[in-house]
């Protein structure tokens, strides 16, 4: 996988003031995870489950910080009830979701959550922006940062498997 567009994402997040990176282990977010761990200016926090990231990002905002949650589409399902904190408190929320169960998926176990990721997020009042090509990265991440932190909106950027490449089985 290219590291060029992930590096562009990292630069934009940092320019946008993001200083808390909450993540679960994931191949699609590998570069962002490594970059955040190596960056002494940010907190890079390994979670045991994605929903911890929902609480953590709200806490960051309460204290004047900005966070991003890096997760896979399968983790979206783990966040649902805690997104009521985001919505009830009108907290900014920014997540980057690496898609599985998407374009060219070869593992049928990934299909159910992958196919329901966007409808589930939208049902929870999270606005979804999708990236399928490296050329869309800059404008989409910039838009997401503005919408999340200026409007205090919940935003999910879905990184599609056209962009990431489907895992081979």
């Amino acid at each position: 996988m290219s590291t060029e567009w992930p590096e562009e994402i990292y630069g934009l997040l940092r320019e946008g003031g993001v200083d808390q990176f909450a993540y679960v282990p994931d191949a699609g977010h590998d570069h962002l995870i490594k970059r955040s761990i190596a960056d002494p200016e940010v907190h890079s926090i390994a979670l045991t489950t994605e929903e911890e990231g929902v609480g953590m990002l709200a806490g960051a905002h309460l204290g004047g910080g900005r966070g991003v949650l890096l997760m896979q589409s399968s983790g979206v399902g783990n966040c649902i009830n805690l997104l009521s904190l985001t919505r009830a408190g009108r907290f900014p929320f920014l997540t980057l979701v690496s898609m599985r169960g998407d374009f060219g998926e070869g593992n049928p176990w990934q299909i159910p959550m992958g196919q329901s990721t966007q409808p589930v997020l939208e049902a929870c009042d999270v606005t979804c922006l999708r990236i399928d090509s490296p050329s869309e990265v800059g404008s989409t991440i910039s838009a997401a940062l503005t919408m999340a932190f200026q409007n205090e909106m919940p935003i999910a950027v879905l990184l599609g498997q056209r962009l990431l490449g489907a895992k081979k089985f």
Binding site: G55, A58, G59, A60, H61, G67, N81
Partner: peptide, 15 residues
């Protein structure tokens, strides 16, 4: 949002 208090505290403490 039962279950989120401790993780919210973590984000706040880091900020």
């Amino acid at each position: 949002a039962m279950g989120a208090a401790a993780s919210m505290g973590l984000g706040l403490a880091l900020a």
